[in-house]
Amino acid sequence: MAQKMALGFYSTDPSRHTLAEDSQGLICGALISALGFYLLNRVGLLTGGTAGVAFLLHYAFNISFGLLFFIVNLPFYWLSFKRLGFAFTAKTFIAIGLVSIMTELEQRYLLIGYLHPFWGALMGGLLLGFGLLALYRHRASLGGVGILAIYVQERFGIQAGLIQLAFDACVMAAAFLLLEPGIVLWSIVGAVVLNLFLAINHRSDRYIVVR
């Protein structure tokens, strides 16, 4: 059945999106998420998921975060394709690519003279929450750990939430080996802000949730 559009832009069916709607959703979600990553990076913080791994490698080896974020997610795309389908995988690939590029561009066009770690954690977490909500609404995501967690749950019966929590705990534990304890604690604050925001504002029965 043909998808009806209003004003040639948005779908009259609330359960479906036009190409234009998906495009603006992915771009806006990626832009907001990239800004959240930029604020965290500006004060040396990190977060959970594959982004947390990219941050750790970035701080340890001084390699571009955007490049690392793109590379770290590569192993999960096949699993995403098998479990969640081509459309979700393709849009997630695009979103991650956009974030990787935008985080590099922001360093050239956005300069912040001073940012307190608390404010970086708070605003970074909130911006990532807003960005992820936009991406979830358009059936996309920013990471592969959630996909792996779903696979482990289906294969071995271990709850996906516990897998995600254990992975994030490992990321934060590894951070204590590279970063000052205070920085890691502020990072945990940012991660809590992000997850509380998503828990309050996101319904998993309405949108796909994979971080």
Results as ranks from 00 to 15, higher is better:
S100W: 06
A191S: 13
V171Y: 09
L165A: 14
H116M: 08
A149S: 10
G161M: 10
Y136W: 14
F156W: 14
L148K: 01
G120D: 04
L105W: 12
V171K: 06
S187V: 03
F176Y: 13
H138A: 11
L185N: 01
I163A: 11
L135K: 11
F156V: 02
G182A: 05
M123E: 03
G190A: 08
A166I: 13
G190C: 06
F118L: 12
T103M: 11
R137W: 09
F130W: 09
L111M: 09
L111A: 07
L127C: 14
G190K: 08
D168M: 11
Y151F: 13
V152Q: 12
V184C: 07
S187N: 06
W119C: 01
Y136E: 07
I188H: 06
V145H: 07
G146T: 07
G146S: 03
V145A: 07
L110T: 02
R137F: 05
E106D: 04
N195A: 10
L132D: 06
F156L: 13
F130I: 10
L142S: 06
V192A: 12
A173G: 03
F167I: 12
A149I: 02
A160Q: 09
L127N: 09
P181K: 04
I183L: 14
A173K: 01
Q153D: 11
G143W: 02
F156Q: 09
N195G: 07
M102N: 06
G144P: 06
L133V: 15
G144D: 04
Q159I: 11
V152C: 12
I112D: 07
L142I: 10
A199F: 12
E180K: 13
F118E: 01
L142A: 03
M102I: 14
G143A: 02
M123S: 12
L122T: 02
I188T: 09
L115D: 08
T103P: 01
F130D: 00
G125T: 05
R137D: 08
G125F: 05
G120H: 03
H116P: 02
L148Y: 09
L132C: 11
A191E: 10
W186G: 00
I101V: 13
G120W: 07
H116E: 13
L198S: 05
Y109P: 00
